[in-house]
Amino acid sequence: MTDLLPVEVTVWLMNRDIFTPATLEVYWVGVKATLKLVSLSLLFGFIISLPLSFARASSNSFIRVPVKIYTYIFRGTPLIIQLYLMYYGVVFIDDVKDSWMWPLVKDPFLPALVAFTLNTVAYTTEIFHGAIANTPRGEVEAARAYGMNTFLLYRRIIFPSAFRRALPSYGNEVILTLHASAIASTVTIMDITGAAQFVYSRFYAPFSAFTFAAVLYLVITLVLLYIIRKLESRFNPQLREVRKSRRKMMFFGNAIQEKRPGA
């Protein structure tokens, strides 16, 4: 049969039966794992970054410098190294196998979660720090002039103002964390990419297997972008009109602004 049909059709026929309920189930498990890993990393990352970003701006160098070193190292090395260190490192530490920790560590989920959280904390801290540092002087001076103390100043003026400025970069970070999570599959986590690899090895249909994974990531990305945009226009009403006209022009083309800033 193969010699009569064009290549594309043969390929399609060969791959036709890979999307069975069973394989779709595998992908569904993958989507759940990806979402769980990403949302938990982002949640913990957000909570830890807040105090760290203020520490990063501290005038006390004993507080500021360690945070700086931490973000420098984690932003200057590949995430996959950090992941391997957490995963293989912990497994190979002597005595861990015999301790109470073993059931927790045996499952790759926890090491992966720790690695992703530590990584996103480094980037998020820098994003928040940048936003805080860029607070217009006049706003701070005005608050002081009205008799606000430091705590009130941070709570009522600097933080809300910085949060608005940080939103676009933070949205970018959310999407990059989603994409970075694809390497979780290398430590045997069955996320979307892991599912694709599984289907690929079962059916030897890499094109369909990975294209389907790509589409899943794309859909999640676009949904996240939509949410980020909604948040942005909610918190920055002055941008609404501009965005509206701009969005029409750019479609989703400019939505994902840039890769993570380097070290």
Binding site: V7, L178, H179, Y204, P206, F210, A214, L218, L222
Partner: peptide, 25 residues
């Protein structure tokens, strides 16, 4: 919109099968 790793696998593994089926044809 798609992770680097997935694109890499798509191009690398997918590219190989594409070339293979081409040479088969």
């Amino acid at each position: 919109g798609v992770p680097d790793l997935v694109l890499m696998m798509l191009f690398f593994f997918g590219g190989q099968t594409l070339v293979n089926s081409l040479s088969d044809a």
